[in-house]
Write a protein that binds this DNA or RNA. Structure first.
Lengths: 201, 201
DNA sequence: ATGGGTTTTGACCATACGGTCAGATGTTGC
DNA sequence: GCAACATCTGACCGTATGGTCAAAACCCAT
């Protein structure tokens, strides 16, 4: 039960988290069952509970691991870089995250939607602090007249909303677009246009 | 059990749906329990099941009722009106919907997030058809050079994403903004700027 | 007031679920 | 080869949950 040490522990913990991501992101915390996760992982239920003390613990491990990945693209927005290019880079990286890690996006979305019962502190701490820091960077760029003057926090919200939409509402997006289209390629082009126009000073 | 007829039936069906909206939007379908709904409604569990044959039926009734309300603002976008004003009007109405009916927004979001298991047909039918129709209107406006040339469907997606974000991620929005701010007022101003710049031909 | 329909409920049932445990099976260092 | 430890499992438990039912309470037109 201590943090993974042996080869088997590392491998099985990984297998379990991977399976749990599948199931939690598809059905939510309450909707997911240990039996389902065990099935997907190819392990027995008691064996899951040999590696993690509870269902809660699995979920918590997933969310913790997720948050870092999720915030990295914003962290990479560099105060020393070219303002427009930096924001556009953030938009692009965030959209790639939606495309490549849709399950993570949905897991996050479900958690926030339900009031973030298991993530409150992370949001109030790490996430809020990072946004505050980057908002300051954006504000400086605006004050210098290098990008249009906007509310920097709402600018960040808009990036989150527009990129995550494609992962979280995937079913709707694909249904409405119809077959034979590439949602993410089109989204990339659309968002490029949108932010080019929005940010122009 | 037949559709509401007597006063009592109308009143209690309403009470149940109202309570169910509270509980389903907060915990998702699986996370909600009939006991919770009964408690909020101030009725006994067997009494709920006197008015609706099952938990599924309550959920289904809610979603059906919701969809119409949800699509109305888009329906009201008038091909004969001024293009920019019509789109801005849609954005404004949709944001008001998020502000005034956040539970409905979350219920919808949870459903789509989980693959729309109980709404597939409505999305493939009514919703898809309406978007196709309005996309044509937008395309005409673009062809006439009255608004900027963009992918009309992604334009609609952007409106959904940006407005629903404020209802669905309410906890995050309020936490990041901090106290003493009015998320919806600020969002209104931000979106006004955004779409003004985006739509300018 | 009374009889027939409507509404409400306490008690109950079957199932599903998270979690436990004693013991079986595997693995590894010596 | 074997002791010591790590990994795994079948059987089981208590509780929660969706749903049923017979009977009670209520309502209302006559």
């Amino acid at each position: 039960m201590p943090r993974p040490k042996t080869r088997i522990q590392i491998r099985n913990s990984e297998t379990i988290l991977e399976a749990a991501l599948d199931v939690f992101s598809a059905h939510g915390f309450r909707g997911a069952t240990l039996d389902q996760i065990a099935e997907v992982a190819g392990l027995s239920k008691p064996n899951l509970l040999y590696y993690f003390p509870s269902k809660e613990a699995i979920h918590h491990a997933l969310l913790t691991r997720l948050l870092a990945t999720w915030l990295d693209p914003l962290r990479d927005m560099d105060a020393a870089g070219d303002p427009v290019a930096e924001v556009m880079g953030y938009v692009r990286r965030k959209l790639e995250l939606s495309r490549d890690y849709p399950r993570e996006s949905r897991l996050f979305a479900i958690e926030i939607l339900q009031g973030a019962p298991r993530m409150r502190e992370a949001i109030e701490g790490e996430l809020k602090a990072l946004v505050a820091q980057k908002a300051k960077v954006l504000q400086t760029w605006m004050d210098e007249g290098r990008i249009a003057r906007l509310d920097p926090v709402h600018l960040v919200f808009s990036i989150w909303a527009l990129t995550q939409h494609y992962a979280d509402f995937d079913v709707q997006v694909r249904t409405v677009l119809g077959d034979g289209r590439d949602p993410y390629a089109e989204a990339g082009a659309f968002l490029e246009t949108l932010y080019t126009r929005l940010l122009a000073p």
